[in-house]
Design a protein around this nucleic acid. Sequence first.
DNA 1: TTGTACGCGTTATCAT
DNA 2: ATGATAACGCGTACAA
Lengths: 338, 338
Amino acid sequence: MPITLQDVAVRAGVSAKTVSRVINNQGEISEATRRRVLQVIDELGYRPNALARSLVSGKSSTVALIIPQITDPFFPEVMLGVENVARQHGYSVFLCNTNDDPQQELFHVDVLATKRVDGIILCGSRLNAEQLTDVARQHRVSILTSRDPVGSAVIGIPGEAGLCEITTHLIRLGHQRLAHIGFKIAEEKDRLSGYQRALRENGLEVDERRVVMVPRASIEAGRAAAKQVLDRAPELTAITCYNDLMAIGALQACTELGRRVPDDIAIVGFDDIPLASLMTPALTTMHVPRYQLGEMVMELLLRVIAADGPFEERLWIEPRLIIRDTCGARSNIRDSVA
Amino acid sequence: MPITLQDVAVRAGVSAKTVSRVINNQGEISEATRRRVLQVIDELGYRPNALARSLVSGKSSTVALIIPQITDPFFPEVMLGVENVARQHGYSVFLCNTNDDPQQELFHVDVLATKRVDGIILCGSRLNAEQLTDVARQHRVSILTSRDPVGSAVIGIPGEAGLCEITTHLIRLGHQRLAHIGFKIAEEKDRLSGYQRALRENGLEVDERRVVMVPRASIEAGRAAAKQVLDRAPELTAITCYNDLMAIGALQACTELGRRVPDDIAIVGFDDIPLASLMTPALTTMHVPRYQLGEMVMELLLRVIAADGPFEERLWIEPRLIIRDTCGARSNIRDSVA
DNA sequence: TTGTACGCGTTATCAT
DNA sequence: ATGATAACGCGTACAA
């Protein structure tokens, strides 16, 4: 149905190849024919068929972004970073939501392979190590993760160190009985480990009663989990969380249970999603540069694509602790100043 | 580099067409060869090339979703709805962010046409009527908008009626001096009109000093705008806003100016984004079923694609007023009950 | 400077 | 039940 190169060629009275040359600015072409061709292209509203082009070139100028939950406020900025860099380099991006389901993730990878994407970005993959390694081996992949680097092109969010820093900060503020609301996904235990390390390094006992692992990274899950820990360990004075959503849930739980934050109990999140600073009280959390992260994974993917063979590169971003109101540090400072 | 149909054919000792038949379950094939072919396909890890397929079939099983700002909390759920329906029907979806820029929007449309997407979903397009009509004419398009229906397949958010309802509600609560913080995009004035109509219908004067139109639908813009109106019209007791983000900005502005919400001033938003209910005080707003909206536009697009010719269909969703804390209605109720 | 022949991987048509 | 051939729209190699 659409206009083809041939149509243009015929109408312009030249060969298809000539039109092709004009479009791609290759080879010497007389100014006269060039103009005529361009004119016809415009007249007919001709658009080159990228599918045919890709079939020949072996490149589709298309990448994919696979994400567990589009609705998680962590991702929009990442997506924006990816999209911007992609567009600047002439790539379109497929958006794939896995709904936290490894099967759906694998399904998407399969479809994408079929569509011959030039590369795939995996954000917060829910695949296990073996599956992930497999995917990374069979496709050009750039990975954004907070787990131990699996695969050969990955950007890491240091969850272990982050949670250790958070927990240590709370301990320094005087907390001795701290909980952790963690996220139970394939093999990941980084943040939990960071929390535990901080406890150990500060001579505090690691009490399993004070840890709850939830299967979803949501406000609701955080809320339920917080109620659960507070029920079985009422002595708690602080709760560290896998991420901000869970922390916000914990915040709600505390309010509902009549525990004042931060006076009775401190809460700290992770990610610094836009919501964090808008909460009352504002959430203390680790800031993760999400937009930049998006740019980075996409740029990394570009390198993977360019390498066109074995490739290895691992980068870590540096989150930083943002002290707001839920950890009580601010009021302490005010107190000491007063 | 990848395995082709030919490779499979050779290895299985059959013709390419036979392999093709097996893959597509078409025609009668002996059980023996079918198995052998499937076996080889598995052995070689063959993946059909969707590009080649599309070239022949003229269908790419790909659609695009064009959005002004991915980071606007309004869109993630819409995207999810689109993505789910798309996947269920075998479509992949390109995500395109326009950064509120009509030029970028047109650029995207162009690229997508080149990639032969089967259809395009336009959400909150920033194009003017003429451009939009043009795009809708040249491509298979499904539109989600709160403007007057332009184009032939559109799902509308009744902004005029919505804001009239909001404003009327505030007037009934006793407010006489109401402001509107609007969104200045191509020709859209629906919500502003609704606000104005409510004033007129209730015998209140329409004062231009009480209206500010901002170019960005963001918290920051709302905050600045609120300060501006409150400065030039200090007598205000209520502010209606184009959407929740602006309302949240207005909320911040009021806090900073020492105006208590809702005691001194009422604020109402539009959309009911997740943030709305999490704010303190919780935001009164019009609820818009975003996930469902996403499903609807995608389903509409499927119909447009299936029609494969002239197509006309216009649907309206029904937002509903969610009364929370920023409009003062709740405390009034409490008062009357006490 | 421009054109011809062929191939990219797949499906459709028409045979066999 | 299976195969040969053409065609989808474009780019590359080689000619002219």
